[in-house]
Design a binder for these strands. Structure first.
Lengths: 187, 187
DNA sequence: AAAATAACTAAACGATTGTTTAGTTTAGAA
DNA sequence: TTCTAAACTAAACAATCGTTTAGTTATTTT
């Protein structure tokens, strides 16, 4: 064996994630990553292979970070109220620090919407499908809703969530919360 | 006098606008602009000064293009129904061709949300303020709404419009239209 | 027709992009 | 303690970024 690494990979990836979160993929350079991660290019490449590799790991890291929100959502038993809480929890992380903008997954979804990057698209697709499934599950807890209504409302909420993530990059916390309240007035 | 220009500036700007619309500012290179506009860098620089100059002109061009939608909105006399029609008209241009993504102003608003580009920020600010004013004007046509409700609903609709523009980059026409219908159920 | 000047072509600019590589340091195995 | 291999530093890589510039073509005016 030989020398030990002087950094922990999950620690430097967490820093990289915040950088991507704030600036997006294309507007984050290796130079910025070096500075933020605190290690030089050689180390980055030996650990993650490429800038793209760093980004994919950052996405995984992000998902791990929001897992608790999803778990709370999944385990909820109050239907629509769970969805609403999930919306509040989702935007809350945007306002807890200043090094993040909106939702990294949604930002990525938008930035790569024109790209044909298969790995990224898979990550995005599974995330969205999973979310839609959960929303449908919660809506079904209300027996008064028929299948058709549930699908329509699920699409509505999914799009509202997407818009919310986009808007949370430029709108204030109060505007965001007012929006959530009005969104759930007719669900 | 001397040689004549072999291109019309508003024609090449229209092409530049579509490129920016599709790719955003940062992900559109001078090389791409050369190809799309059909003229070379010298001509671009002599006509517009810089890439930034091309972008500002593209924004003006975009605003000119959507002016008719705004005029229809402004001249409407049916209150909330006018707002709804404005939403439909706004997303319609996204689906009429394939070289555009969402709303150029909203895309720019998001892309430059972290920047301190004063010229761009002014353009965005005036656009949003103008839109909010119009929405309030239409909401006021309903005498049953008090001042507080109007402000809250205006904020809601502005954010919904923003989210809609973001979502229209990745969602289908049907999803978008379902969303609009549900948005106006409690306005 | 000649002079003047704006519009063109095409190459180059320095800076920065993501990536690689040569050389040095450090730590465990022999 | 010596050898080996991984982790480091730092410089360089080719490609591309936005921008400029030198030289040629074309049109108008004198």
């Amino acid at each position: 064996m030989a020398r030990k690494k002087q950094y922990k990979e999950d620690e430097v990836i967490d820093k990289a994630m915040h950088l991507f979160w704030r600036n997006g993929y294309e507007n984050t350079s290796m130079q910025m990553l070096e500075k933020e991660m605190g290690i030089n290019k050689f180390s980055i490449y030996s650990s993650f292979g490429s800038k793209h590799g760093v980004f994919l790991e950052s996405l995984k890291c992000y998902k791990k970070n929001i897992k608790s929100i999803f778990d709370t959502f999944k385990n909820g038993t109050e239907g629509v109220a769970d969805i609403k809480k999930f919306f509040y929890d989702s935007v809350a992380i945007t306002f807890q620090g200043k090094n993040q903008k909106g939702c990294l997954v949604t930002n990525t979804y938008n930035e790569f919407s024109e790209s044909d990057d298969q790995l990224i698209k898979e990550q995005m697709g599974s995330f969205m499908d999973n979310l839609k499934e959960l929303i449908i599950e919660k809506l079904k807890m209300d027996p008064s809703k028929d299948e058709d209504t549930i699908l329509k409302q699920a699409n509505f909420l999914l799009l509202a969530k997407h818009g919310l993530a986009a808007a949370s990059r430029v709108n204030s916390q109060k505007e965001i919360e007012d929006y959530i309240e009005m969104t759930f007035q007719n669900i």
